[in-house]
Amino acid sequence: MLLSVDNITVHYSRLPALREVSVFVDEGEIVCIVGPNGAGKSTTLLSISGVLNPTSGDITFDGKRINGMSPEAVARAGISQVPEGRHVFTTLNVEENLRIGTSIRQDRSDIEKDFKKVLEIFPVLAERRKQAAGKLSGGEQQMLVIGRALLTSPRIMTIDEPSLGLAPNLVDRVYETLLELRKDRGLTLLIVEQSSERALKSADRLYVLRSGQMQLEGNVADLQDGEKVRQAYFGFEESTTDDDEVAF
């Protein structure tokens, strides 16, 4: 098990945003966490990255306990997050953005190799190398932040809603790239998604999170009819989605 989130509870001030949530990811897997707005998906990723501190429970990465570590220490340990809303450094140019990803690395010759590779994977970034990142389109910015996260040379990449604000064909493109990265470099991925269809299409395993609690987990192969996922996503007895706005 590469990453294991074990029974964590996270509070925003005094309200619990996550209640005893567990997630694990094996090396080389693509795991999706799906759920409605406010389910606690981003909270889970931010806890893994050390931005939020769980009030109870443990997070272990490669056998080491990482909760309580600073975000930069988590990044150094080998977990790279692409947070919701992309967060490019708009005033830095494309190349500078990518170079920030290499801050933690000392292996100079490998950095240059990886840098070239990222530009090969995303040729549009090579074209716009000297342009301010704020001037890129949404899709290009998404490529930039994925490339930047790759340059930290992570063992696992966590991505929060890679499809947010992108046109459907661009979303396909992003997922294609992610699947290729898994195939070519053995990258392990933990992806937060709102769309369960997308998750069923691309992931190996899937978790459904709602109201800060884990509703369902399973292999995507076993969940293909989608009915179980839908029920977990929207809640059982309810026909409406009243229950969705929660936790915060």
């Binding site: 930069e72 450094f89 920030i100 930290t152």
Partner: peptide, 24 residues
């Protein structure tokens, strides 16, 4: 300089810079 660029990144988005390993 490398640290200078890191400083500009941190000035714009401190949390993101730290998540990429920049030492806050």
């Amino acid at each position: 300089t490398k640290v200078g660029v890191q400083m500009r990144a941190a000035a714009e988005d401190f949390r993101m810079a730290r998540m990429l390993g920049v030492n806050g």
